[in-house]
């Protein structure tokens, strides 16, 4: 019960601090801009009138939009989770809470659950509004919109878990910076990996794959891209061969393997457990 109380408290804090209002307002602006941009693009060229061309160009637009959104999610997840525990330690707020008969694990897991609810709801609503707007304007809907949203959630949850782990040990600012910096490293490693594959450089490919295992955000990003690509694009890329298909950060020929997804879930569970263990032994 304490876990749920802490989770709902995190949600209530977001609402009271007008985080939800701000997120809602920004989403409305983003969706409005998306609708306007797509409608302008459609009206620019006659070529857009062809359904297959609309699908192709709209899919590129959607993937670029998703990339921007994933960056916002990464920053949002890091800066939401990094102060979640650290700021309560810094301000002394936690000194009144933890003497209550609650487990420290419930406190950490409750924070995680509350933030996951916030991020998950934000991603689901924003993605639904964006896809609906693009569909209304262009008639195009990506092949796997729900899977894409779930992959983006996965990416956000991985980074949120990392930032929450940092929050049990270091100051808010430090935790946020660590999470964002590591996210950047993982993303760049993913980029380099595609280049390594294109040039058939096994050692760089192995090294970048290892970075991807240490922080598996890029696996989720690739899953999101794959879910947003029209099947014709994937088929064409695959026909051109593995190197060509993977040689773009925004064009993925296959979804992340089940093994990689299981690794990512395991990674999240292990880092969350480490957060609990670290916080259990922390002197306040």
């Amino acid at each position: 019960m304490a876990l749920l109380t802490i989770a709902l408290l995190a949600v209530r804090e977001a609402a009271r601090r007008r985080l939800l209002t701000a997120a809602a307002a920004l989403t409305i602006v983003l969706v409005g801009l998306t609708g306007w941009s797509v409608s302008r693009l459609v009206s620019l060229h006659d070529a857009w009138k062809s359904p297959s061309t609309v699908a192709l160009h709209a899919s590129i637009f959607v993937i670029l939009l998703a990339w921007g959104f994933s960056m916002v999610l990464a920053v949002g997840a890091a800066f939401l989770a990094a102060p979640a525990i650290a700021s309560e330690v810094e301000t002394g707020l936690i000194l009144a809470v933890l003497p209550r008969p609650i487990r420290r694990s419930d406190f950490v897991l409750g924070k995680w659950l509350g933030l996951a609810l916030l991020l998950g709801a934000y991603i689901a609503l924003t993605a639904a509004l964006e896809f609906a707007t693009i569909k209304a304007v262009t008639g195009y809907l990506p092949p796997h919109p729900i899977a894409a949203a779930l992959y983006l959630m996965g990416e956000a949850f991985v980074l949120m878990t990392l930032a929450l782990f940092a929050s049990t040990r270091v100051a808010s600012m430090t935790g946020g910076i660590i999470a964002i910096a590591l996210f950047g490293v993982a993303w760049i490693a993913g980029m380099v990996q595609t280049i390594a594959i294109a040039f058939n450089n096994q050692s760089i490919e192995t090294a970048t794959a290892a970075v991807g295992l240490l922080l598996p955000t890029d696996a989720f990003w690739r899953g999101a891209v794959f879910s947003l690509e029209p099947s014709a694009v994937v088929a064409t890329a695959n026909a051109a061969g593995r190197s060509a298909a993977d040689n773009t950060p925004f064009g993925i020929s296959a979804p992340p393997s089940t093994a990689l997804l299981l690794w990512s879930f395991g990674w999240t569970a292990v880092v969350l457990s480490a957060a609990v263990l670290t916080f259990n032994h922390r002197d306040l």
């Binding site: 804090e13 601090r17 000194l95 009144a96």
Partner: peptide
């Protein structure tokens, strides 16, 4: 327990 550094959720 009343802590010396008493802080409570100022948004509640």
């Amino acid at each position: 327990y009343l802590p010396e550094l008493f802080r409570y959720q100022d948004w509640l």
